[in-house]
Amino acid sequence: MSTPAPPVIVVAPDSFKGSASAAQAAAAMARGARAVAGDAARIIELPLADGGEGTLDAMLAVWGTEPLTVDATDALGRPCTARYGISADGTTGIIEAAEANGLPQVSDVDPQPLAADTRGVGRIAAALLDAGVQEILLCIGGSATTDGGAGLLAGLGVRFLDAGGHRTGTGGGDLASIEGVDVSGLHARAAAVRWRIAVDVDNPLCGPRGAAAVFGPQKGASPEDVATLDGGLAHLARVLRAEEVAASPGCGAAGGMPLALVAVLGAVMVPGAELVSTAVGLPQALAGADVVLTGEGRLDSQSLGGKVVDAVRRTAAATTRVVVIAGAVQLDAAACRDAGLTAAFSIAPGPAELAGLQADAERLIEDTAAQACAALGLGTGRCG
């Protein structure tokens, strides 16, 4: 009788918010799998993210590179230091926009939704262009801005002009005064690279489901501010001749940041989890996998609509068993089967307080991974 080939196990989780980063969760799952499957097993660690908070760290962990920093400005134009990343081969750069225009950076002052802009994100992009990357992955969650991406382009040298030919501001409250766009000063490489924007919502730019109406209040916008912002975004779309872009799903993400980038630079919007999984090579890793362990803080119906678990289950071959490990599992067995999941396990060993689970998350993730692998028959049948 021939000896079975050692199993190929891919561990590809999102972060467990407030408990473990994606890289920490992946390492814990790998330890648990190794304890059961043995040293002969091939275990591939691919920490993932959905394009929001933590995406930069997840990508750096997979690339094996360190974060770089650049002098930028926050959403209110104050100096700040922002991190960004470049792949080991130097071809791909990643920006987590909230490093410059995020809400936490301006939480020390009263909200200024009409003034906030994305110029600082443009400064990060300029650093990547200067470094010679061929592709920029732009992750835009957590923004304090509603400027349609105008500030970002201004940070790359574009001038926005009023009816008299004078430079305008690029905050959300300035958009209605823009009548012309001068791209003569645009960074020389800005239009030559490939831009992919990670979005995790399907909102259009304007209207009742638009950037201002849905997300503006979270950024401190009053009803009057929302009306101003919505009108300004619609006006900017007309000036850029990008009404069709404005109506597309996802253009309302992060205060409409995709608008100017798609219209001027030909950027492409991509679901965040799909962008990250493609960039780190998940399809290739899963091609020969027997099992994939994925997970996040909470497995529920939203997990199947564009999040990391969704990307993993859609990428895995029909013969690959997909197991979810989560802090809380809110899908029953039938829902898991319908979604193509082999099984889902909560890390909670019993009734527990959230604080306790968070404090001991890595050990619990490791133990649950061992339990799952033993249940799948990947080792001796005994828990690791």
Rank of each mutant, 00 (worst) to 15 (best):
L56D: 14
V264T: 12
A198R: 01
A191S: 09
Q105T: 12
G350A: 07
E353K: 15
A191N: 08
C139G: 12
T294M: 14
F16I: 04
A247D: 08
R382S: 15
L275A: 13
G379Q: 11
A49F: 06
G255V: 06
V308D: 11
E66P: 02
D162P: 03
A279G: 11
L376R: 15
D89W: 14
W63K: 07
L186P: 01
A211H: 05
T278V: 13
L153R: 00
R31G: 15
G210L: 06
L56Y: 03
R241L: 12
G252F: 11
V133H: 11
V309E: 06
V109R: 11
A98K: 00
Q330T: 09
G306P: 07
A273E: 05
G120D: 04
L156Y: 01
L275P: 06
G18T: 01
G295H: 07
E45Y: 10
L261D: 00
G54S: 04
A5F: 05
I43M: 10
V199I: 06
A287F: 14
P208Q: 05
P258D: 09
G120Q: 01
A125P: 02
L233M: 14
A188C: 12
A116W: 02
E53M: 02
D50Q: 13
R314E: 07
V291K: 03
A125V: 04
A115S: 10
V70Q: 14
I43G: 07
V62Q: 12
I325S: 10
A191T: 04
D14T: 04
S2A: 12
D130T: 14
V109T: 09
S107L: 05
V193L: 13
A343Q: 15
I365Y: 04
R238Q: 13
A246K: 06
E66G: 02
E274R: 13
A61K: 04
G256A: 03
A100M: 00
P6T: 03
L259C: 07
F215S: 12
